[in-house]
Design a protein around this nucleic acid. Structure first.
Length: 500
DNA sequence: CTGGGGAAGGGGCCC
DNA sequence: GGGGCCCCTTCCCCA
């Protein structure tokens, strides 16, 4: 117990009001312990989680406070408080969820070399950034240990390297120090990855006997056929390894499948486990660089979803991302190792960190660029730009029907809702929409937001007096616009962001 | 069921 | 490092 002196956290009173308070350090622990006890006794449990047929009981409020996924899920179902909420998962195994749930109710994460990948995957799915961080720490720990032993490794024979012991769990515990911050620090997105939750700096890591196994696992097969790596990693996975993004990763997992005798499981193992070890793949020097990446994390949509739903600003929702790991990714033509960046989620490597940052969005589902015209969200600005030009601005000077080239003289822009395209005059006549009354005031053009302004909104340009003549079909959303292409092109050159 | 076309999305790379 | 372009693949819709 200790005395606290400080400012009130309330923003308005912050500068004027001081408080003296007492913090009982064990309170949080006892509270969680009680909740855990209630969970075990099925007391007040109002949420059923079905994982591959196994039912887990839990408390909505605890799940809500622990997982971004459940936060979103339970927010949506919060109106139906009378019925227990049921969530079903196929993406990970009951064992994995047990580890996750135990962590939620105890602050202790029971990681092993066998479960760390799946736990991290599940945590990613459930948007539990703390768990992801701890898993990364776990993996990094094995790398660090391996690094120290690298020299020794080179003197080891294959025989020695191949002998590894059985894995035993490592326990990462929140620690509940007197000055402990809440263990589920994803509620404090400002905290960096490494310091995320002071509590994590106090985790217990044991047993020491595991170190040898980890060392050996991590460093074997340098420059060897990647297919052989998995056999020595010892980080064997159950057959139901979840994937961050199913199809793509499965495709990529299949890439090294040329090693004939490898089972599908082995391929998965290789794909998922390679990340923490790849830094040693070409093992020359200390080439593992960890950096925190201030990229918003996973969108609410599950990693398997299409990501089409609207969501709050990604920056707010996904406060952290897995670190970018720079590795020696191969050998340049001059026989010097070249730096490449390894995706922590798949086997993909890129030359530039910025490219990896961009690539990571395909794993997280983050789509920070919304089209204000139709609501569709994009992971990349250039895709948004392309989409907008194609769908909403009819930039292609091609008749959509007959595919002939059209100009402002030989064709017109047709608008259906927010969608615009061009039709040549002949096709317009064929469609019987050549006699529609032109109403200049009926519509204003769509305007592209300024360059790089993720947060800006797209407007129907009110103050951008347009040269577009609009013909509205009284019966539907169909609108014909008379577009002055020459001026459009000039606009594009002068004010590029305002693509028209 | 199938093939074609359009849109989306991912990677490489230049500016 | 970000923006943007090009190229390619995949997905989806439609005839």
């Amino acid at each position: 117990m200790r005395l606290l002196e400080g400012s009130c956290s309330d923003g308005e009173r912050r500068d004027t009001t001081s408080f003296f308070g007492m913090e009982i350090s064990s309170h949080q622990f006892h509270l969680l312990q009680q909740l855990n006890e209630q969970r075990r006794q099925d007391l007040f449990c109002d949420c059923n989680i079905l994982v591959e047929g196994k039912v887990f009981k839990a408390h909505r409020n605890v799940l809500f406070a622990s997982s971004g996924y459940f936060k979103m899920l339970l927010s949506q179902s919060s109106k139906e408080m009378t019925q227990p909420t049921t969530a079903t998962f196929q993406a990970f195994s009951p064992d994995t969820f047990t580890v996750i749930l135990d962590f939620v109710y105890s602050g202790k994460l029971c990681l092993t070399g066998q479960n760390v990948i799946e736990v991290m995957s599940a945590a990613s799915y459930l948007q539990m950034t703390d768990v992801i961080s701890v898993c990364k720490t776990f993996i990094k720990s094995s790398l660090d240990i391996s690094e120290k032993e690298k020299d020794r490794y080179f003197s080891l024979s294959d025989k020695e390297v191949n002998s590894n012991g059985a894995e035993q769990p490592c326990l990462y515990s929140a620690g509940w120090r007197a000055e402990s911050s809440p263990p589920h620090s994803h509620l404090n997105p400002d905290q960096g990855t490494c310091t995320r939750g002071n509590a994590w700096s106090n985790f217990n890591y044991y047993p020491a006997s595991q170190r040898n196994a980890q060392q050996q696992l991590s460093k074997h097969d340098q420059r060897q056929d990647p297919g052989k790596k998995a056999r020595h990693l010892g980080l064997q996975q159950p057959s139901d390894i979840p994937h961050y993004k199913s199809s793509k990763l499965e495709d990529r997992a299949a890439e090294p499948a040329g090693h004939g005798s490898q089972s599908e499981e082995q391929v998965h193992i290789e794909t998922e486990v390679e990340s923490p070890h790849v830094g040693y793949q070409y093992g020359q020097g200390s080439d593992v660089i960890s950096r925190s990446l201030a990229v918003p994390q996973q969108e609410h949509d599950s990693p398997r979803s299409s990501g089409k739903s609207k969501s709050p600003k990604a920056d707010e929702q996904y406060p952290s991302m897995p670190s970018i790991v720079g590795v020696m990714g191969g050998w340049a033509e001059d026989d010097l190792p070249r730096m490449r960046f390894k995706c922590p989620f798949c086997t993909h490597m890129v030359k530039r960190k910025a490219d990896l940052k961009r690539h990571l969005r395909c794993h997280t589902g983050e789509r920070p660029y919304p089209c204000e015209a139709c609501g569709k969200r994009f992971s990349r600005l250039d895709h948004l730009s392309s989409h907008f030009r194609t769908i909403h601005q009819a930039c292609k000077l091609i008749c959509r029907k007959c595919k002939r080239h059209v100009t402002e003289l030989t064709g017109q822009v047709v608008q259906e809702g927010t969608r615009r395209y061009r039709l040549c005059n002949e096709c317009l006549a064929e469609a019987g929409i050549d006699s529609i009354r032109i109403d200049l005031e009926a519509e204003t053009p769509l305007e592209f937001p300024p360059d790089g302004d993720k947060d800006s909104r797209w407007h129907y340009g009110e103050d951008n007096k347009s040269d577009v003549e609009i013909v509205e079909d009284g019966s539907s959303d169909l609108v014909i616009q008379q577009v002055d292409d020459s001026e459009d092109e000039a606009d594009e050159k002068e004010v590029k962001p305002n693509i028209r």
